[in-house]
Nucleic acid binder design. Structure first.
Lengths: 189, 189
DNA sequence: CACATATGAATGAAGG
DNA sequence: CCTTCATTCATATGTG
């Protein structure tokens, strides 16, 4: 279920006036692009097709096409891909530790915990996603014209870019413990 | 909206305001993390200790420790700090808005891009600040007709916000809004 | 229950 | 590309 599928929320409720015509001046505070569902759909589709880092030309073309659905600027497309890609990766970033899975079966302090979601998700949980290699293949299947695509996602594997800055010997609390060793000192983290 | 960090559910009560994109608005309920008082206490304490933007590693550890008190995921910790920090700043900002309100962050995007390196450089122009044009609050007052109760609520909710009601080129639910000739093939870009 | 508010979650936009 | 900030959306909870 990733973005392509229906599992996404449609927010945006307010009448986002979305100055279809920014008369040059943009409201100081009311001017954030709010994509329409159609726009999102198209962008997502492109992303799924393998497009990750559109070139300037691509951005322009996409933007032009999407403008049909509502106001949109090139930078919106640019940012969208940046964010989408980054967050996609972020979620994929796995944090080895997983004993978080067993939730406190001894929920002593369960005030009102809504334990509906099966917590199998970690920080930025993983979803089945295609690898970068796959992306490249896809793009090759659809040779782009009208520009020289040279920035095709390098094969960066990026195993685990976690900044393990803490060489600190941290010991995980024993599940058996009655009380977790809460050490609020930042240095303990 | 991408695949949220959580394999979350959908809600969809709102409509993205514009062109015929709407969703049935089914109110699927899903749970969201609800911190226990102990968890909040610890988080607050950490925050007070100076921690503002925990690293992934720290988040992990905090999450692990807090899991003792109840269900919690790393992302919850992440969001907690993000929100807490942002909201505190937000409050602070409200108090200190003095006369000098031209903190205008001017446009950083210029067109003078020499278009050499990466094709995806920021080239898009950004709306610039014109004068101190205030957004005219021409939000039409919604007649007390009975909209769909959902819609009504939305509108009311945002009525007091700075939303421009400019003439959006596309009328809401314009039947003409058929799908434009969109070619999603990358090669068409 | 309606409305108000607090806050969790998401994401557009930048900055580096 | 990564991280952070700002703003918004959504929901839980509180109060009348």
């Amino acid at each position: 279920m990733e973005e392509g599928l229906s599992g996404f929320c449609i927010k945006g409720s307010h009448v986002r006036g979305n100055n279809g015509n920014n008369n040059g001046g943009s409201g100081t505070k009311c001017g954030r692009w709010n994509p329409t569902t159609e726009q999102v759909k198209v962008l997502t589709e492109l992303f799924r097709s393998g497009l990750r880092t559109p070139s300037t030309d691509q951005i322009q073309k996409i933007s032009t096409q999407l403008s049909f659905y509502g106001k949109i600027e090139s930078k919106n497309v640019f940012y969208w891909f940046q964010n989408h890609k980054a967050r996609e990766r972020q979620k994929r970033r796995k944090v080895s530790i997983d004993e978080n899975d067993f939730i406190s079966r001894d929920n002593i302090f369960n005030n009102n915990n809504s334990n509906k979601i099966s917590s199998s998700k970690r920080f930025f949980e993983v979803k089945e996603y295609q690898s970068d290699q796959r992306v490249i293949e896809t793009l090759q299947l659809f040779p782009l014209n009208s520009f020289d695509e040279n920035e095709q996602e390098k094969l960066r594997f990026h195993a685990n870019e976690c900044r393990e800055t803490s060489s600190f010997p941290y010991t995980i609390n024993n599940p058996e413990m009655d009380h977790p060793p809460l050490d609020l000192r930042l240095s303990s983290l």
